[in-house]
């Protein structure tokens, strides 16, 4: 029986393959490093228990929460103890400023969160229009400037506007978070071409937020070079949120690995993958 012997070059190749990087590059925001590129929102889950299981299945490390006026009616709120279901040792709690109609209200909410012991990180979102929930760029920039000066790590939710994204990174925000499509719409990356420009220009991580309705949308963002995605409705409102959380985790890991591996160039014509059959012509 013929035996194969590896020559020196082949042995080197095997060694290189064996040592090839198998773990994707971590995500760094401000002074913290994360292995997951999925942020998970906590809204719309049917129970705190399902939310906790979904967080676990998603592998996420950053979890958003909202701040709202306390219910003083004395009625029992089943979601009142949400913090009992999010381990602060395992997840970074990221309070958002949803509900703020202008910069002043957003700044007040951020200060309240920090004063009460939440991390000095804030997902800055100001969307006065309840129908489309599109963010107000002028108020967002004004609030970002104030909060950055006060030492907050600011992650602003914005429309996919490359000029605004640059202005925000220039004032010192830790990320930019352009929307793919309106919050909760599950429409995917309607703003794809604008997000591409934001990614090209960014020197801070780009987190695609809002509108991501399926793992394929998240994968599309990561393959484009977005650093992370924030998902909420697509997981919380799924038939089985825990399985959907796992599906997103897998899609995001695969897409990031594909991005780091280097996707081949798109062509507008064919490029043969098999030798073109010249011998048939010679018969």
């Amino acid at each position: 029986m013929e035996s194969y012997s590896f020559g020196f070059p082949l042995a080197c190749l095997v060694l290189r393959l064996h040592h090839r990087k198998t773990v994707s590059k971590p995500l760094t925001i401000a002074d913290r490093t994360f292995s997951s590129r999925l942020f998970l929102g906590t809204g719309k889950f049917s129970s705190n228990e399902i939310m906790r299981e979904s967080l676990d299945a998603s592998g996420c490390e950053i979890v958003t929460v909202a701040l709202r006026r306390a219910d003083l009616s004395g009625k029992k709120d089943p979601f009142a103890n949400i913090l009992d279901f999010i381990d602060p040792q395992k997840y970074l709690l990221l309070p958002n400023t949803s509900g703020a109609m202008n910069a002043e209200e957003a700044v007040r909410l951020a200060r309240l969160g920090a004063a009460s012991g939440l991390p000095r990180w804030v997902k800055l979102e100001i969307h006065p229009d309840p129908h489309y929930l599109l963010p107000d760029p002028i108020e967002t920039l004004a609030a970002a400037e104030i909060l950055v000066k006060e030492g907050f790590v600011v992650l602003p939710y914005i429309n996919a506007d490359p000029v605004l994204a640059r202005r925000l990174q220039d004032v010192g925000t830790a990320t930019v978070m352009p929307l793919g499509s309106p919050i909760g719409s599950n429409r995917g990356l309607d703003t794809r071409s604008q997000i591409e420009i934001i990614i090209k220009q960014a020197c801070v991580p780009v987190v695609v937020d809002a509108g991501i309705g399926a793992p394929s949308h998240a994968a599309e963002a990561l393959e484009m070079g977005a650093d992370a995605v924030l998902v909420n409705t697509a997981i919380a409102a799924a038939g089985d949120p825990v399985r959907m959380a796992r599906a997103f985790k897998n899609a995001i890991e695969a897409a990031r690995e594909a991005f780091e591996a280097g996707l081949p160039m798109r062509l507008d014509h064919a490029s043969a993958t098999s030798p073109l059959a010249a011998f048939l012509k010679s018969v």
């Binding site: 719309k44 909202a66 949803s98 309240l112």
Partner: peptide
Amino acid sequence: EILQVAAGG
């Protein structure tokens, strides 16, 4: 003003 931490995205 009294606020509370709530679920949100």
